[in-house]
């Protein structure tokens, strides 16, 4: 079954933080003042709580810090790349692609749907390597937007 990945709300290819928290904060900061997040304090608390509950890394290279939160009315997604790789937990020491996902609380399967769509894009080694080498944020976002064009 194919799942559609909604367009990224925010993208950066120049994540620089040296810890997981710093990287997640880098991705979250632009959202803080956007109209997409109704209560940024709550959203941050929920993100941190989810990270404390268990790993958010999908594989060695990819991590998806996320939370189901009452602070958003619709799905919000921000993507970024870390050139050198950052440790997320013991098993995932060099995460380079990070996607921050906030989903409304009442939709149980929404996170799974986005995750499935994201994973199916990243399963393609070519897409993955182009994401890792994309020159600009726009190029990065486009690579995920439309698979056929990529």
């Amino acid at each position: 079954m194919a799942f559609t990945l909604p367009p990224l709300d925010f993208t950066t290819v120049s994540l620089t933080g040296s810890t997981m928290e710093a990287v997640v904060r880098e991705l979250f900061d632009p959202l803080r003042n956007s109209s997409l997040v109704l209560d940024s304090k709550q959203a941050w608390v929920d993100l941190v709580a989810r990270q404390a509950a268990g790993s958010v890394a999908l594989d060695e290279t990819v991590a998806v810090p996320h939370a189901r939160t009452g602070a958003v009315k619709r799905l919000v997604i921000a993507g970024g790349r870390h050139v050198n790789g950052v440790p997320f937990d013991e098993k995932h020491q060099s995460v380079r692609l990070v996607f921050l996902i906030l989903t409304p609380k009442e939709r149980a399967a929404e996170y799974l749907r986005v995750l499935a769509a994201l994973a199916s894009r990243l399963r393609d080694p070519a897409t993955r390597s182009r994401l890792l080498t994309a020159g600009t944020s726009d190029e990065f976002a486009r690579l995920l937007e439309d698979r056929a064009a990529a």
């Binding site: 509950a53 268990g54 999908l58 189901r68 996170y111 799974l112 995750l115 499935a116 994973a119």
Partner: peptide
């Protein structure tokens, strides 16, 4: 392959 990033609380 999506399983590693998912906890019960994510899909509750």
């Amino acid at each position: 392959d999506i399983a590693t990033g998912v906890l019960a609380t994510d899909i509750l």
